[in-house]
């Protein structure tokens, strides 16, 4: 079986999805179902105190018994905030160690602050977390994160929520070729072909939220993404043909086209 293995645990799906930006938890749940994802990201936020006590809880719609939850540090701009958020997440999820680390550097681009990310990763790994880490597509940063002990390297394909697709396949390729842990594209996927390309390049998986949640029909897009990830992975495993620049090669027989001049000598 061709499975994705992260921190020793096996997953059938190579598509990881977020739970943000949906109309309600019913849509969230339906989209996750359609995507086939087994790993689902959640954010950690302050709860309302003393108001709206009947507010529905995300974890009732996305139960930890059914999905592997991946708490993130979205919105954290310092290593201190990120580390504290994930300690809270671990407590919230009963000792669950698998986390997504992101330390942002700029609210406009949501580009990661790699200096803080590297420091935070080091602390979290020492504290026993299995860290899947959001990173720039810098191959050196990716290597350093792997050396620290992160269990998955997750470079951006383009800015978070931009839907701009894979802007630098060459850097992704270098990261993939060098990494011994899974590499997942995190951020930037806009439509199914982007996800397929990521897997064709050799990425082990893709994590996305906005591409599904902000589609006109999120549940249909979730289904499309599931197929794209499967198709991309199969194409990667199948090994694509070599590109032949400026050289055509017909697929049909060259001989026997009607009304063509025969070169065969029949000796009559």
């Amino acid at each position: 079986m061709d499975n994705l293995i992260i921190a020793g645990k096996t997953y059938r799906s190579r598509l990881l999805v977020g739970t943000g930006k949906y109309k309600d938890f019913t849509d969230t749940r339906a989209a996750i179902e359609a995507s086939g994802a087994e790993i689902v990201t959640v954010a950690i936020r302050r709860t309302n105190i003393g108001q709206n006590t009947e507010e529905p809880n995300l974890l009732d719609s996305v139960p930890p018994s059914k999905y592997t939850l991946l708490p993130n540090t979205a919105g954290c701009y310092t290593l201190d905030d990120a580390v504290r958020t994930l300690r809270l997440a671990r407590e919230l999820l009963d000792g669950h160690n698998l986390v997504k680390l992101e330390v942002l550097g700029d609210p406009r681009t949501l580009y990661p602050n790699m200096v803080e990310t590297l420091k935070a990763a080091e602390i979290l790994v020492k504290e026993g977390f299995d860290v899947m880490v959001y990173t720039s597509d810098d191959p050196i940063a990716a290597r350093q994160l792997e050396e620290i002990g992160c269990v998955a390297i997750m470079p951006l394909a383009s800015l978070i929520g931009s839907g701009m697709g894979i802007l630098n396949p060459w850097n992704l390729q270098i990261i993939i070729d060098n990494a011994k842990v899974p590499v997942l594209v995190d951020a930037g996927v806009g439509t199914a072909s982007d996800a397929a390309i990521a897997l064709e390049l050799g990425c082990d998986g893709v994590l996305m939220n906005t591409a599904i949640a902000a589609a006109q029909h999120p549940i249909l897009m979730a289904s499309a993404m599931r197929k794209a990830v499967e198709a991309g992975r199969e194409a990667y495993l199948a090994g694509r043909m070599t590109k032949k620049i400026y050289t055509a090669s017909p697929s049909s027989p060259v001989e026997g086209v009607i009304n063509s001049v025969s070169t065969i000598n029949t000796n009559c």
Binding site: T19, G20, T41, A43, N209
Partner: peptide, 27 residues
């Protein structure tokens, strides 16, 4: 972090700062 098992023992005192969090939708 305050482990759940200590909720009934820990007495909050003047100046304490609490963060109370839940899981919400996010990517």
């Amino acid at each position: 972090i305050v482990p759940r098992s200590q909720f009934s023992e820990q007495l909050l005192t003047e100046g304490d700062r609490l963060e109370v969090v839940v899981a919400v939708g996010g990517g």
